[in-house]
Design a protein around this nucleic acid. Structure first.
Lengths: 179, 179
DNA sequence: TTTATTTCTTACCATACATCAATTTTTCCG
DNA sequence: CGGAAAAATTGATGTATGGTAAGAAATAAA
């Protein structure tokens, strides 16, 4: 597959090494940074009013992660971003307003393409949260991101799926029993 | 506020009147149509394996609705789209690939802007589904779309929130009791 | 390696929300 | 308007998932 302008652009940026657990963005920060993951895995999550963590996104190799909403509106971040594994990332300082950055049409279309993919993935997550049981959601996750299962602690997967680690443990047992 | 290229463009298209309940898109259809709602309200929803309806989106005035994923990949739609009220819509035949449509940079950026807003709204829905109770989700809905509350049957709002109509009825009673 | 820390599992009980069914209220339409 | 259909409410009960706590297993640190 042809390398996009993005991949090319990100690759030209200097590498930054991040240790597992290292926090790149905290809720409340104001930031214009976008992280491109070259190696390893980052995640974004929020902490709700009851102090519970909810994972919004995982970003393994070749994914991009940020708090887009905070970035676009230049307001305090809602999300935390940290490293799930030791990782190598590229940090892009993105302007909130692309218009001011003189983006060429070709690039705009590529960005658009990325956004469309993102919208699709968010959509399927919403649809699943609305219509599927914990067990079904887990099964879909396993199918969709088989390699993350090995790399990400179960409790984080539970958090991403919207259930407790205990429930996920029981769900997994259930699935094993069926086989 | 200045009128965007989009609003301008959509307005130039011929009007189509749709009766309440009329179906514009059915799951399984292949379509390249995007609906701009000038008056009234449309919705998109899916029917799951148990025959249950789940509303993905409401589109009142000045919103756009389609099955983007199906459109982009030119595959059968997952969603149904129908009219919640008698409505007036503009129908746009959107090419799956914008590149082939020679979109000018200004327009690309406007599309991008729309996508960013969409991503933000999907995000907050996911975050709510992950972290908020039925009652909290309903309260947020009331605040966010106060005028839809009057126009859309409760059972549809329940479906959008991911709960049953019975539960929503109880939630509302609960809220009234508190006041 | 040994020890400390985190993660995972399991059991028991609690709770939010679902289901089913009957009734009332609202909306639709001839 | 008046009857039929759809939507909303309510009560009784079921179920998926949550909470708590304790121990086992895995991982990290010393």
């Amino acid at each position: 597959m042809e390398e996009t302008y993005f991949q090319h652009y990100f690759k030209s940026l200097p590498e930054t090494r991040v240790k597992k657990g290292e926090i790149l963005l905290s809720a409340g920060d104001i930031s214009s940074k976008v992280y491109y993951v070259q190696e390893g895995c980052l995640r974004s999550y929020l902490i709700d009013d009851n102090g519970k963590e909810h994972i919004y996104q995982f970003a393994p190799e070749d994914w991009v992660i940020s708090d887009e909403e905070a970035l676009l509106q230049q307001k305090p971040a809602l999300l935390f971003i940290d490293a799930v594994e030791d990782s190598v990332v590229k940090i892009l300082n993105r302007p909130a307003n692309l218009k001011e950055d003189n983006v060429d049409p070709e690039t705009a279309l590529q960005i658009l393409d990325k956004f469309e993919k993102k919208v699709n993935s968010l959509r399927s997550r919403i649809i699943q949260l609305l219509s599927a049981s914990a067990e079904e959601r887990y099964s879909v996750f396993v199918k969709t991101y088989p390699n993350l299962i090995q790399r990400v602690p179960q409790k984080m997967i539970a958090s991403y799926l919207g259930i407790t680690p205990e429930s996920l443990s029981r769900v997994r047992k259930e699935i094993l029993n069926k086989k």
